[in-house]
């Protein structure tokens, strides 16, 4: 699905003392199958932006077009487009309410009007996708699971919608390092298998590095940078200027450079960082 954001403005609590402009004239285009990271400091508007893309908010000005149809419209065409956008909110396990894992994951597909067999097949597939054994987990009570397992169930509930666009808002927040790496690897595998558009919202830039090809930086409700991942995440000064911490590898390479090493500073994944340092040593 083609996503086009046109001079989008969003204002929270309009007309009250707590009024806050969250987005100021954002323009953005995302092609089908793209893998895009959206980052920015707290309050930069990244969560608001993706909720607009999912058609959950009404713009104060501007619009979001999903294949040319305004995302928030109350028309059957718009509803059909919105159904192709899966958005996992921050801490998605906070939205669970069903009595079994199966019912929880089946909640979305049921609203798509699928028959029971299709629903069951999707639930199995989605649970396997997030690394939970369907036979062991389907009948368990979601609230008795560990934090990491609850997160996986919640994400499976979104994957089970089989969306053409998957948006994840801080999918690893609050998880331990091992769980983080595993979930991200599985989401990447899902993207490669389906070829869907993949939008990852995060301030963990090191996690973003291996998952997306393009990064959009937001600050104070505006797009301040948009380009290839290496180009955006390798620029430590720009990241710091908007209040983000550069990936640790970039910090390390910048420090080496400052100490006189002839290193590139835009190596993002650890293998690349090691090779870069070794290359300098072996020169």
């Amino acid at each position: 699905m083609h996503i086009r954001v046109e001079s989008l403005t969003h204002i929270y609590a309009r007309g009250t003392p707590a009024e806050r402009v969250a987005l100021r004239g954002v323009d953005l285009e995302i092609e089908p199958g793209e893998r895009v990271g959206i980052s920015g400091p707290t309050g930069s508007g990244k969560s608001t932006l993706v909720q607009h893309i999912a058609g959950l908010l009404t713009p104060a000005a501007g619009r979001v077009l999903l294949d040319g149809v305004p995302a928030h419209a109350r028309t059957p065409e718009a509803r059909a487009r919105r159904r192709q956008v899966g958005l996992a909110f921050q801490f998605p396990e906070a939205q669970m309410f069903e009595v079994t894992v199966f019912r929880e994951v089946a909640f979305g597909p049921r609203h798509l009007g699928l028959n029971a067999d299709e629903i069951a097949a999707r639930v199995r597939w989605a649970l396997e996708m997030v690394g939970l054994d369907p036979d062991a987990f389907a009948d368990r009570v979601p609230f008795a699971l560990s934090g990491g397992e609850m997160r996986r169930v919640a994400l499976a509930g979104i994957l089970a919608l089989k969306p053409q666009v998957l948006i994840l808002d801080e999918p690893t927040a609050g998880l331990d390092p091992r769980g983080r790496a595993d979930i991200l690897a599985r989401l990447r595998a899902w993207q490669e298998q389906t070829g869907a558009t993949f939008i990852l919202v995060s301030h963990h830039l090191d996690e973003m590095a291996g998952l997306v090809d393009r990064v959009v930086l937001l600050a104070d409700g505006q797009v301040v940078a948009d380009g290839p991942t290496r180009h955006i995440l390798g620029d430590g000064d720009r990241l710091r200027s908007v209040g983000l911490s550069p990936p640790p590898g970039v910090v390390l390479l910048e420090a080496l450079r400052a100490a006189g090493w002839p290193v590139r500073t835009d190596a993002l994944v650890i293998e690349e960082i090691i090779s870069e340092i070794v290359r300098c040593i072996e020169r």
Binding site: D176, G249, I273, I274, I277
Partner: peptide, 15 residues
């Protein structure tokens, strides 16, 4: 125990 390592320690180990 699966706790990971400090970033610098991991780079040093691989080097």
């Amino acid at each position: 125990l699966g706790l990971g390592q400090p970033f610098a320690a991991e780079v040093a180990r691989r080097l």
